[in-house]
Amino acid sequence: MFRLFLVPFIFLLVGLVVQETNGQYYKKVGNKIFPFSTIVVDQSGNGHFSTIQSAIDSIPFYNTNWVAIRVKAGIYRASPRRKSCDPTEQILHYIGRGLGKRKTIVEWYDPDGPERSPTFSILADNIHVRCMSFRNSYNNPINGNRKLRAVATTVSGDKVNFFRVAFYGYQDTLYDANGRHYYKLCTIQGAVDFIFGAGQSLFERCSISVIGGGFITAQGRESPNDTNGFVFKDCHIFGNANTYLGRPWRPYARVLFYKTNMTKIVEPSGWDSWSPDGREDLSTYAEYGNFGPGADTSKRVSWAKKLDLSTVENMANLNFINTPEEWINYQPF
């Protein structure tokens, strides 16, 4: 079994070159991009480190090499984070790869709000995470706790990419705070405002799992000139309780659901105003091309927007988050 793994690994090194693009160093074989170096995390002691935090801390500030942190299977009970040391820092590292959403799990138990409770925090730029799960278990029904804000992941860095990652919680599961982010084939679970923040983010082919009555999004756009907003493209909304698609955390909240499968759990009115103050028209809540029993827009709130096709296509496009650098093209997958 060891030999079967080793042979293709050696083969991949043939023709390998070190390449630099936009100040970022990685290895390239043909058209494929690979990390410059790899760190292994294994709780059993068969890796470079036994905790994710130790692996993250080993990467120096101002690092310009893509570093892969490969996390072996297991439940890691910790709250790893990496802070940027100043606004100009470019930390380039590739978190994961885990062995799958159900095999590599990072868990924390804390209800202390979005700044202090996250199971996992990303405060630096240029991060790629794949094939693992982050869970804040405080609101798990078996604990019998009063439901409080308990964040599974905070994302404040720019140019952050998640692939086949799961986020589990109840209230405020995913704090998509700031920056440009791409979530593909991810699972986000929760009940109340469980995707919230002022990120400029595209959620593509993601599963939105509702486990209690509430609101999927609470978007935080504060100005009509802000470029941020949430776009859900080709997603699936399902669960065991009725839900609203969103409510505005800030007055100019912007959310688009595009070609998404909406089951009957979506409330007919679609959106909630949070606290009616006559400013509902400032928000941009839109739907386009959705399907399923929850996608009927005939009873939606009067202040839901009908965007023109050009605007919809611009938002539901990778360029919504990828320009001008086309940064996703230069992340080693």
Rank of each mutant, 00 (worst) to 15 (best):
F2Y: 14
L6Y: 15
F9T: 14
F9C: 13
F9L: 15
T21C: 04
Q24M: 13
K27G: 08
K28T: 06
I33V: 11
I33L: 15
F34T: 00
F36M: 04
V40I: 15
D42R: 11
F49S: 02
S50G: 07
T51A: 13
N65G: 04
W66I: 03
R70G: 03
I75A: 10
K83L: 14
C85H: 15
D86T: 06
T88R: 14
G96F: 07
R97A: 13
L99H: 14
K103M: 09
I105M: 06
Y109K: 02
Y109F: 15
F120E: 08
L123D: 12
N126Y: 15
I127A: 05
R130Y: 14
S133Y: 06
F134P: 00
R135Q: 10
Y138H: 07
N140P: 00
R149K: 13
T154R: 12
G169Q: 04
Y170A: 02
T173G: 09
Y175H: 12
Y175V: 02
Y183C: 02
V192N: 12
V192M: 10
F194R: 01
F194Q: 02
L202P: 00
V210W: 05
G214H: 04
T217N: 11
D226S: 07
D226P: 00
G229F: 11
F230T: 05
K233H: 11
C235N: 06
I237A: 05
F238D: 01
Y244L: 02
G246Q: 05
P248C: 12
A253C: 08
R254N: 02
V255K: 07
I265F: 10
G270N: 06
G270K: 03
L282F: 15
S283Y: 07
E287N: 03
G289S: 09
N290V: 01
F291I: 00
D296M: 06
L307I: 06
T311V: 12
T311R: 14
T311A: 14
M315P: 03
N322F: 08
P324N: 12
Q331A: 07
Q331N: 11
